[in-house]
C-alpha cells in the first residue's frame, strides 16, 4: 500500500497542511478530506508544505485545482512551500506557477498571507 500522510495544523489564521509520501489517485481522497474539513471550519488561508512529499500524480494535482476557487472566493488562497525539485517539475509541466504561489519555506508563505491582511 502506498504510504501517504496528511496533517493539518494552525499557525495563527493560516492552516498548514503537511503532506508526506506518495500523493496519487489512491491517496488523493485523504487530501480532499483535509480541504473539506478546512472549508467546514471556514478556514480558507492554506499553506501546503511539501517537504516530505516524494511523489505527486495528476490525481493529486487535481485536488488543488478543485479547491483553489473556493479558497480565493473567501479571501484565502492555497500557497505551496518546501517542494522538492522532482515534485515541482510536475507542477511546472502543467503550468501551475502561473496559478499558484510557490515559496522556499513555510514561513515565507505564511508571511505572505499576513502581508495581504495588513494591506
Amino acid at each position: 500500500m502506498a504510504d501517504f500522510n496528511v496533517n493539518v495544523r494552525g499557525v495563527g489564521s493560516v492552516s498548514v497542511i503537511d503532506v508526506k509520501g506518495y500523493l496519487d489517485a489512491h491517496t488523493a481522497p485523504q487530501l480532499e478530506n483535509a480541504f473539506n474539513q478546512l472549508i467546514d471550519g471556514s478556514k480558507y488561508k492554506v499553506v501546503v508544505n511539501f517537504n516530505d512529499l516524494s511523489y505527486i500524480s495528476s490525481a493529486g494535482l487535481g485536488v488543488f485545482m478543485a479547491y483553489v476557487e473556493t479558497m480565493r472566493e473567501n479571501k484565502g488562497d492555497i500557497k505551496f512551500s518546501n517542494m522538492q525539485d522532482g515534485v515541482y517539475n510536475i507542477f511546472d509541466l502543467l503550468g501551475f506557477p502561473m496559478l499558484y504561489e510557490f515559496y522556499k519555506n513555510e514561513n515565507e508563505a505564511i508571511e505572505k498571507f499576513k502581508e495581504s491582511i495588513s494591506k
Binding site: 495528476s58 483553489v68 476557487e69 480565493r72 509541466l93 502543467l94 503550468g95 502561473m98 496559478l99
Partner: peptide
C-alpha cells in the same frame, strides 16, 4: 492542456495525466 490562469472557475481537474505522458 489549455486554460486561462485568470479564469479559476474553469480550471481542469482532469485530463492532465495523458498530457504529462505525452510531454
Amino acid at each position: 492542456l489549455e486554460y486561462d490562469p485568470n479564469d479559476i472557475e474553469n480550471l481542469p481537474e482532469g485530463g492532465m495525466g495523458l498530457y504529462i505522458i505525452d510531454q
